[in-house]
């Protein structure tokens, strides 16, 4: 059995009017069934309002399903007596780096979770040290969180969750408020947790370049899972991703545009290195096949230069 098993999970937000009566119901998560194996790196993509954060909060028992069920490490989150076990086995890191650090000193914040769990003092110190080392923030253990950068604060938050020795960590848009450097450092820390500590990671984001290392990607829209697969499988559906208004990396867009112009490139190219390699292969093949004579004329063998319909590739320009 997987570490997270949801079946037909739905969640309704009920909007109350001023008298406290139900005014309207919004279905935020709609019939989601998914299964996550221990040790996997999972990414959930979708734009704001797609239901991805609502789904995330179910994994930590901050919300319980309106319909259907979700089991975390074999425990039903809807059962009152399981709540604390669930929260311990599935930690959560939130979006705003300022609003989740409780301690006034980095190490005290990391110790907050274990303190709540009733871990003996000596062990708290061991856990704090190892967690801070795992995210590369041990040197800052005596610092005030207010003086750290956004990326550093998020790594402290990750350490704070790690110190609770969870089986899985849910990162709910941890990079949305960070600059590119901070974003990279947080993603690096999350990958290290998965690679080294074998913690199951569930990364929720709207940046596609952050999910290329995931084992499995789920794309959400209007509360439903609309696509799933390996990053390569998901990224090969460029048109569909663009229709969902997701941020397809420029390399993938470019590879797709080249493909549409007739270049025999593989589907779902994710990085610049990959594209470079594939193009080199093409060049070598062409050199070998056509020799020196055939390859001189531009566009002579079916590759159309600049004749694509203009709306096929726009690079995100309005």
């Amino acid at each position: 059995m997987g570490i997270i098993e949801s079946s037909h999970l739905s969640y309704d937000y009920v909007k109350l009017n001023e008298e406290g009566n139900a005014e309207g119901v919004t279905r935020a998560v709609d019939d989601v069934s998914l299964s996550v194996e221990p040790g996997q790196f999972i990414a959930i993509l979708g734009h704001n309002g797609s239901g991805k954060s609502t789904l995330a909060r179910h994994i930590n028992a901050l919300l319980v399903p309106t319909e259907g069920s979700i089991f975390v490490d074999g425990k039903d989150t809807a059962k009152e007596e399981n709540v604390w076990d669930v929260r311990q086995s599935a930690g959560m890191v939130f979006q705003n780096p300022d609003n989740q650090i409780i301690g006034q000193v980095v190490e005290e914040d990391v110790g907050f979770g274990p303190e709540n769990m009733g871990v003996p003092t000596k062990e708290i110190w061991e856990r704090v040290e190892e967690s801070l080392r795992a995210v590369g923030m041990y040197a800052y253990r005596k610092h005030s969180p207010n003086k750290l950068s956004g990326g550093q604060k998020q790594r402290v938050s990750i350490a704070g969750v790690l110190a609770m020795h969870p089986k899985c960590i849910v990162l709910d848009e941890p990079t949305a408020m960070l600059d590119p450097d901070g974003r990279k450092s947080v993603i690096r820390a999350a990958r290290a947790l998965n690679d080294v500590e074998r913690v199951t990671v569930i990364l929720i984001t709207h940046y596609m370049e952050e999910v290329i290392y995931a084992d499995r990607v789920f794309v959400m829209d209007k509360g439903r899972i609309v696509m799933q697969g390996t990053p390569r499988e998901v990224f090969s559906h460029v048109e569909q991703l663009k229709a969902l208004r997701l941020d397809v990396p420029q390399v993938t867009l470019l590879a797709y545009a080249l493909q549409k112009s007739g270049l025999p490139l593989p589907d779902g190219i994710l990085t610049a290195e990959e594209l470079e390699l594939e193009l080199k292969k093409l060049r070598d093949r062409k050199n070998a096949a056509g020799g020196a004579a055939g390859a001189k004329e531009a566009g002579a063998d079916g590759w159309n230069v600049g004749e694509e319909e203009p709306d096929a590739v726009d690079g995100g320009t309005a």
Binding site: G299, G306, E308
Partner: peptide
């Protein structure tokens, strides 16, 4: 992206 596509195709 379109500019890049064109110049790559031309180069190839």
């Amino acid at each position: 992206v379109p500019e890049a596509r064109d110049t790559i195709l031309k180069a190839l």
